[in-house]
Amino acid sequence: MLNSINTNPGALIALQNLNATNTELNTAQSRINTGKKVANAKDNGAIWSMAKMQSASSSSLNAVKDSLQRGQSTIDVALAAGDTITDLLMKMKEKALAASDTSLNTASFNALKSDFESLRKQITKAVDNAKFNGVGLVDKSAKALVFLANADGGSFTVNAQTLSLEGLNLTTALASFSTVAEAGSMIGKMTAALLTATNKLSALGTASTGLDTHLTFIGKLQDSLDAGVGNLVDADLAKESAKLQSLQTKQQLGVQALSIANQSPQSILSLFKG
């Protein structure tokens, strides 16, 4: 090997190795500090881009969950109103049946008639108040509600189920009686109204179950996306910690090797001693 004071190949090689070790050490320290092996596009452009897109999809699902949960609340309010309405219909049927008794005196008949009409009015009140955030599914003006189903803007539709007097065919003109005979005929109408109400509530219940199932799926999908992103960009801290220890030792050895290599030119001085 050429003995020169201008060029020290050994020191150059030692310096190159030390610089490489320092670069690896900085990378390991960055991964430990951030918890990520791909923290930005510079680390790995393809993986970073993929992770960003999946993170965006996961984040978008928060809006989907909010929409579906709003749908749940709207249906729950409608079902609560439906329970009240079916109870009122049963009481109305009971009043009509009682009023059909030919042995009643006029005062008793009129009292039953008044109770029947009062219960009918309560149905309207229940329907009008069955709204969540100003939106209802059972009033006469209710329309199908469309909620978000996925991050691409897909929809989940819940059909309205009108439980108003019009929807139950119990308007004032159709659901009233003035005679015992009319009270008797009202029993069949109340039975039909109950059947209609329960069928509509059953449809709402089915929609609610579907909404719950889809919401559960969205939650699992979001968790899977988050886990997938983590697999792409998260650092294995146990592995990085072990690597850090190894690189720190390698760095110390590199410094010593460079120091030894830098001392080599001094051996040339011995050639000039007499």
Rank of each mutant, 00 (worst) to 15 (best):
A183K: 06
Q54F: 13
L97Q: 15
Q16G: 02
A99D: 02
L232N: 00
P265E: 07
L88Y: 14
L137Q: 05
F177M: 06
N44K: 07
T74G: 00
F109C: 00
T171E: 14
S176Q: 13
S118Y: 03
Q16C: 00
I218G: 04
F217N: 11
L15M: 11
Q69P: 02
S259Y: 12
L148Q: 10
T196A: 15
V180C: 05
I187K: 12
L148F: 01
V127R: 06
I13V: 12
A261V: 08
V127M: 07
V229Y: 02
I75Y: 02
L232R: 05
V255I: 15
G45T: 11
S178M: 06
D152L: 12
N262I: 02
A261C: 05
T213Q: 12
D139V: 05
A149N: 11
A98V: 06
W48M: 00
G136V: 02
L119F: 15
T162H: 10
L12C: 01
A193P: 09
T7F: 08
M90G: 12
S224F: 03
L258H: 09
L12W: 04
V229D: 03
Q248V: 10
K93M: 03
V38I: 15
R31G: 02
T86C: 01
L211M: 12
T206P: 00
L12V: 11
A203Q: 15
S73Q: 12
A39C: 07
N231A: 11
A175S: 14
T102M: 04
L195H: 11
F116G: 04
K131R: 12
A46E: 11
A107M: 00
M53P: 00
Q245T: 15
D43C: 02
G82N: 05
Q72Y: 08
N231H: 14
K65F: 04
N105F: 05
A39N: 15
G230S: 13
A20P: 00
A151Y: 13
G205F: 08
S259G: 09
R31N: 12
L269K: 08
A144P: 00
T198P: 01
S164H: 12
S264T: 11
S267E: 05
N159E: 14
I32Q: 07
L237I: 15
L137H: 11
V255W: 08
A126R: 09
S176A: 11
L137C: 04
Q266F: 09
R70E: 04
A238N: 15
S4F: 02
L137N: 05
D226Q: 13
V255Q: 15
S4P: 00
S49R: 14
K113V: 00
W48N: 07
Q54A: 06
E182P: 01
L15R: 13
Q222P: 03
S114W: 01
N40A: 04
L247N: 06
S103N: 08
G184V: 08
E182W: 10
K200W: 11
G274F: 10
H214R: 13
M90H: 13
P9C: 01
E117V: 07
V138R: 09
T102D: 10
Q29F: 06
A41G: 00
T216W: 06
T216Y: 06
S49M: 04
N3M: 08
A80Q: 14
S59L: 03
K189H: 12
V77S: 11
N231R: 15
A173L: 10
K42H: 07
M190N: 06
Q222A: 07
A192K: 15
T171M: 10
K91E: 14
T7Y: 10
P9L: 10
A235S: 14
K200E: 06
